[in-house]
Simulated assay, not measured.
Amino acid sequence: MARAREVGHMEIYGGEGEGAVIAGLFRQSDRYETVRPRGRPDWLLAFTLGGSGYFRTADGERRCEAGDVVLLRPGAPHHYGTCPGETWHFIWAHFPGDRVEAGLLPDGEASVVRIVSPGDRRRLYRAMLRVVDDARAQGPFWDELCLASLREALALAARCGGRGSDPRAAEALRWLSAHMREEVRVATVAGAVGMSPSRLSHLFKETTGQSVIDALNAMRIRHAAMLLEMTALGAAEIAYEVGFRNYNHFLQQFRKRYGVSPSGYRRRGGTAKSGGP
């Protein structure tokens, strides 16, 4: 049976358990917000139809208005809601990334793409509406139909966002995100994406502007900053949680990016300026 919950202007439909597609259509006042300090295990796509909302991630805050598509990576801490004085109307879906082609998904933790063409907006809305309708009805092959419509929406967003880089670099980033808390070696990442270490290092640097290890450290530090803002965990606990086994190395990397110690960052309420990519 479909799982549905309606509270005011909220409709949620979808399957049960990890890996299921869940979709909905919301119209929410400025009292609405969602905070997930540890993110979710799946991707989120949100397409704004009217009004405005905001998304806060380790990369900062982004305002979303009609025509904006937001994609949030699994495991990325986030906080989103309706902008003050606004009503936010948006359609959304959670979905498993391992059932979608790597080239359709963005590289970063959060991506915002503006769909300018009215025709593309209508097409993307129709695709997302099919996701919600199929999740609601849950007829034969409903999950596959949802994913097919999601692929269309993702392809439109990728095209409008000008993406088209080598998908293996994106796959490596997703692997790093999934294994961030482990000890990571370039050779291990290369094996996971079917490349030699030297070829991956060259391609990754060419595509992202960073080395594999620099990207991993930046990812860990962004997560650490979010945990400092949104939890009461100590700095040493956070360092271990995001994958650092050497606390002094964690402190060095944190100061390099934010210019202050973790305790100083927390005292300032997370307002320290980022000093690097």
Rank of each mutant, 00 (worst) to 15 (best):
L216W: 02
C146Y: 02
R27F: 03
G97T: 01
P106A: 08
R255Q: 15
G119Q: 11
G259T: 04
D68K: 08
A218L: 11
R126A: 09
R114S: 15
S117T: 05
S274N: 00
R31L: 03
A110E: 12
A2L: 04
A170C: 02
V112R: 12
R114P: 10
G81H: 03
V113C: 06
R136S: 04
N248Y: 07
V21F: 09
R63S: 14
G81Y: 07
V70F: 02
A76Q: 12
R130T: 07
G234C: 05
D134Y: 14
D59C: 06
G275H: 01
E206P: 11
A169E: 01
Q252L: 14
G75P: 08
A172G: 10
R181D: 11
H9P: 01
E86Y: 10
L150A: 09
V193W: 02
E65M: 10
R222V: 04
V260A: 09
A148Q: 05
A58H: 00
D59N: 04
V70R: 07
R185W: 05
G234F: 03
M10V: 10
S198K: 10
A153H: 03
A127E: 00
G85K: 06
F90D: 11
A135E: 00
A169I: 00
E183S: 05
M219H: 11
Y265F: 15
R199N: 06
A187Q: 12
G259E: 07
L71N: 06
R151A: 13
R136A: 09
G161T: 00
W88I: 02
D134A: 07
S198G: 06
Q253E: 14
R159C: 03
Q210H: 03
A172M: 11
L49H: 04
E11A: 04
Y125A: 13
E109K: 10
P37E: 13
S177N: 09
R267V: 01
E182M: 01
V35L: 15
H89R: 14
S274E: 14
S211M: 01
L233A: 14
E101W: 11
A178L: 12
V242S: 02
G39H: 08
F90W: 10
I238L: 02
Y32C: 08
I115A: 14
I12K: 10
G108L: 08
A235I: 02
D214R: 15
